[in-house]
């Protein structure tokens, strides 16, 4: 078995620090907690979460950016963990489905998904929910057409789409009612 050398070319004077290609220490802030691991730079955020940190709530459906099952937030923006390297997320705040709710209480969006039966097999669901919550924060849930378009980055092969929309509508309306009451 061979080990990979750190680097082949001599770094130029204005060249940056080289890490890898072997395992290096990577520190991630995930759901408010700093997690350390030794991984190669090629390890995706998705595989780091699932295989290294046992945060398996984030799903792998395609590993090519084509399904949205791996949706997480980096610095509170929804992104795809499969096309993100774990090492590139140092100094960023990663939030996964496991960090969405505290204790036993469900996040309102989780409750709405449950009540609207907005899933069947549940495999796309964490990604849908991470997208849905972000969608409301972004202000892209104005009407159904907007929800449809802005939720189209998350495939659901069980095709729970109409129910996903109704779950989102409910949380949107609750939030609006809450704001109006204040």
């Amino acid at each position: 078995m061979k080990s990979y050398q750190a680097t082949r070319t001599a770094p130029a004077p204005d060249s940056a620090v080289v890490r890898g290609p072997g395992e290096v220490e990577v520190r991630l802030r995930v759901n408010g907690e700093v997690r350390r691991m030794f991984v190669e730079p090629r390890v995706s955020l998705l595989d780091a979460l699932r295989d290294r940190l046992d945060l398996h709530g984030t799903k792998k459906g395609c590993n090519q950016g084509a399904c949205g099952a791996c949706t997480v937030w980096v610095d509170r923006r929804r992104v795809l963990a499969c096309l993100t390297l774990a090492i590139s997320c140092e100094n960023r705040e990663v939030t996964t489905i496991e960090g969405l709710s505290e204790g036993d209480t469900l996040h309102p969006m989780q409750q709405a998904f449950l009540d609207a039966d907005a899933f069947q097999c549940g495999y796309c669901t964490p990604g849908q929910i991470m997208s849905a919550v972000a969608l409301l924060d972004e202000g892209h849930a104005g009407d159904d057409d907007e929800i449809r378009e802005w939720m189209s980055g998350n495939l659901c092969r069980c095709a729970a789409y109409p129910h996903i929309r109704s779950a989102i509508r409910r949380v949107r309306d609750e939030q609006e009612a809450g704001r109006a009451a204040r």
Partner: peptide, 21 residues
């Protein structure tokens, strides 16, 4: 394939690093 990783903070280093390798 295995890859190494660098993170750069200024344009000069970015260009220099990639140009050199």
């Amino acid at each position: 394939r295995p890859v190494s990783y660098s993170r750069v903070a200024d344009v000069g280093t970015a260009i220099g690093t990639v140009t050199a390798d």
